[in-house]
Amino acid sequence: MFMKTFEEKWTAWVDDQLTGRELSEFLASLPDRAAAEAEKQNAKQVGSLLRDQAMALSNADFFSHQLRERLDRENVPVRSEVDAMQAGWWTIRRLLWGGITSLAVFAICTVLVFHDRTPSSQSQYLTQILEYRVDPTVSPNATISMFEKKDDHVTVLWVDGLQSLPPEYAAK
């Protein structure tokens, strides 16, 4: 057998489980018997209260779970949720702006590059003759002149002295 500790004896006394010599020894060991009796009465009242409420707590696990979830919801800092949303929104917004800005820069650069390369439809320049040449062995008497008809906006390369050809050369 083994010796009971004070706490075990105390619990047994509160539950009215101590009897005989064990009870008298325990009561004699109490330093303040009146305080101990008061504490015993309090413990009994709490016990009876819990027994009375036992029906209401028949689904104790479920109740506890619901309670914990509600507490979690209420305790999650609203501020951090908002912060997270704002942080996400800011990130998306920055990405959006970054994308739009990049597109704008790309479009402007493209326009500038192609604008420089493409002939304008409103060109006012006349066609220019840069070089001209006839083979003197084929056309020894040929002479070439060029002029611009500015009123008609036409440039003409006028070749004289080429060998005349018969009408059949007009065939398609």
Binding site: L130, Y132, V154
Partner: peptide, 15 residues
Amino acid sequence: LLETKARLSKASPLV
């Protein structure tokens, strides 16, 4: 018969 190099403008035909 003939060889030439020209800068042909959109607004100006070459004849």
